[in-house]
Design a binder for these strands. Structure first.
Lengths: 104, 104
DNA sequence: ATTGACACCTAGTAACGCTAGGTATAAGCT
DNA sequence: AGCTTATACCTAGCGTTACTAGGTGTCAAT
């Protein structure tokens, strides 16, 4: 599968993962891998910048935590992020249905 | 819907449209609009370069036609294009299922 | 004569996932 | 003690690709 396939859909998936509950970057990567059935095994260089983007856009907020000697930046959904997640889910359904219509 | 959403999926859809039967660029644009229920109303600057890419990759082949005074470049699937279409359909199903899994 | 639909083209831009490097802690093995 | 693996973070630069914004030309309708 080409790398470009993900473009424009990663944000929605990250919001969805963090929407389940606050999570740090590494955990987001694991969740994406598990919830996608192993399809999305994303490098850190993909996910970390995306998290920063989402925070800069005000859809996520972060705070530092320390767990067993390791520092973690834990992200949570902001109000705007929660609202954006709803929109993105709708966008995805519309998009997927449209692609199905063309490929059918 | 963001423009990036399409990335990596346009090729598959163009192959699918041309796979139904040879078509020229403008007709491809119309087919994409119709078969997607109006969701994909793509500018020429998106579709024409994509057609050129696919031809350069050997998945499409083209020939000039003249219909009622207007010249058209008509594209058809090559053997490799047909095979690629099959792969891309599979990729899409895998991808869509994975995204569904994460967003659910 | 002018507008709109048809039909093609391309240079440049913006977005973003990824590569490839880097730092640092903790646990387990030899 | 040294090494590897997993955890956990970061970023500069690259490559791909959809789109913008322009251009050319034909034909039908007003």
């Amino acid at each position: 599968m080409k790398a470009e396939a993900l473009k424009g859909h990663l944000d929605a998936m990250i919001l969805a993962v963090v929407g389940v509950g606050p999570a740090h970057g590494y955990a987001v990567i694991e969740q994406l891998r598990e919830r996608s059935g192993g399809v999305f095994d994303l490098p850190e260089g993909t996910v970390y910048p995306a998290l920063h983007r989402l925070e800069a856009d005000g859809l996520l907020a972060s705070s530092w935590e320390t767990a067993s000697g390791r520092r973690r930046r834990v992200y949570r959904l902001t109000r705007r992020g929660k609202s954006a997640l709803g929109e993105r889910r709708g966008d995805w359904q519309l998009f997927a249905q449209a692609v199905d219509g063309v490929l059918a």
